[in-house]
Computed example of a mutant assay.
Amino acid sequence: MTRRTPPRPVDVARLFPELLPFRTESVRLHPRAGAPTYRDSSVGGPLLWPADEPWPLCPEHEGSPMVPVVQIHHGDVPDLVPFPAGCDLLQVLWCPRSHRDHGWVLPHVRWRRADAVGTRLEAPPSPAEREEDYVPRPCVIHPERVTEYPSWDLREDIWDALEDRFLALEEETGWDYQRHLSSAPGTKLVGYPGWSQHPDRPVCAGCGKHMEHLLTVRSTEADAVSRHAWTPVEEDRDRPYQGPGLVLGDLGGVYLFECHHCPGRPFAHRYDCS
C-alpha cells in the first residue's frame, strides 16, 4: 500500500514567493510495522550484512553491538538520495544506549554494493544492555518524494520579514507555517532535517564546510498538531498507527549528516528533544 502526503492546504509559493529559492525535496519513508526481510528496505529490519565483515560495535560501551536502524536499497527511493558511486545500499545502525559525549545514541553509517555481499551474516550479535525506546520496531517503508520549505532552517532575516504574514495566515485559516506548511515531519531522507529545536548543522572537520542532511529518524510520524496536514491520505489522522515505536528525547529525533566533498563521505549526527 502506498502512502501519499496530501497537498499543502494553501499555496505556499504563491503566498510567500520569498521562499521559492529555499524550496527543496525530501523522501518521506512512512515506516509502518511489518515483517521486512534482509532483502528489503526497512526501518528496524534485518540487514544484508556480509558474514566476513565485523559487526559494528560501540566504542564507548566496551564493544556492545549496535542495532539496525535503517536499510535503503537505491532502487526503492527516488534519485534525490546521493548514493556514492558504485554503491546501491545504505545501512544505518546505532548503539541503543545513552552516551556521554554523543547524546542518546551513537550511529554508524555504511554504504555498500548489495551484490558484493556474498554470504550473509544470518545471526548478528545483540547488545546485552539496551534502552528499549532506542530500538526501532521492524517496519516496512513506503518512500514518497515531497516538496519542503525551511522551518527552523529558514534564515532569520527572511523569517523576520515574513513573520507577520505567517501569523495573519494562521489567524485567517488555522494553518501554521512551521507545523503545517514547511518541512515534512517523521523519518525521512535528505531535504531539511526535522529539527524540534534550533538547528545545529555540523561542520566537516576535514574541509570546514557544512555537512549535508542525509537522514532524520524521528520518534513519531507527526505530532498532534502537524498530523492534520501531513497524515497520508490513505490513513485516518485520528487513528493511531504502528511505527518504529521510538522515544528519542520524548518526541525528538536523531539527524545524520555527511560531507560530499571529503573522501570516504565522513558523517556526523545531532539530536534534539521535543
Rank of each mutant, 00 (worst) to 15 (best):
V140L: 12
W49L: 05
P21L: 01
Y241E: 14
E53C: 04
R28N: 12
A85E: 13
V77S: 05
P266V: 06
R239N: 08
E53V: 08
E18N: 03
D76I: 00
W159R: 11
S182R: 00
T37L: 05
G174F: 05
K188A: 05
P9L: 09
L167C: 10
F16Y: 15
H108L: 09
E170I: 03
L246P: 01
R39S: 12
V70P: 09
A168N: 10
R112M: 12
H261L: 14
G191R: 04
L47Y: 06
C207W: 08
H102T: 11
W111I: 03
D101Y: 12
C204D: 02
L181C: 07
E171F: 01
G86C: 02
T24L: 00
R32Q: 04
P59I: 13
M211I: 02
G174N: 02
F267H: 13
E122I: 03
L256M: 14
S226A: 15
E132H: 10
P56R: 07
P266G: 06
A116W: 11
S41A: 06
Q242A: 14
G118D: 03
Q197H: 13
P84D: 07
R39D: 10
R8Q: 09
T173S: 04
R113A: 09
H73L: 15
P244M: 14
L181P: 05
T119L: 13
G75H: 15
H210L: 15
W104C: 06
D250E: 15
P31R: 02
S98Y: 12
A114Y: 03
G186Y: 04
S64L: 12
V135C: 08
W94Q: 05
L29G: 02
V135A: 04
V105F: 00
G243F: 02
E144W: 08
R179G: 07
W104L: 11
T216S: 15
I72C: 12
P127V: 03
L19R: 02
G45V: 04
R239V: 11
V247T: 12
T2H: 15
W195F: 07
A13T: 01
Y255P: 10
L181F: 09
G249H: 15
R23I: 07
D79W: 03
P150L: 03
G63S: 11
Y241M: 13
P244Y: 13
C58M: 09
Y241H: 13
A184K: 04
D238G: 14
H102A: 12
R32E: 05
R145S: 07
R14S: 15
Q91A: 04
P199A: 00
E235G: 11
D236I: 01
T220C: 15
D164Y: 09
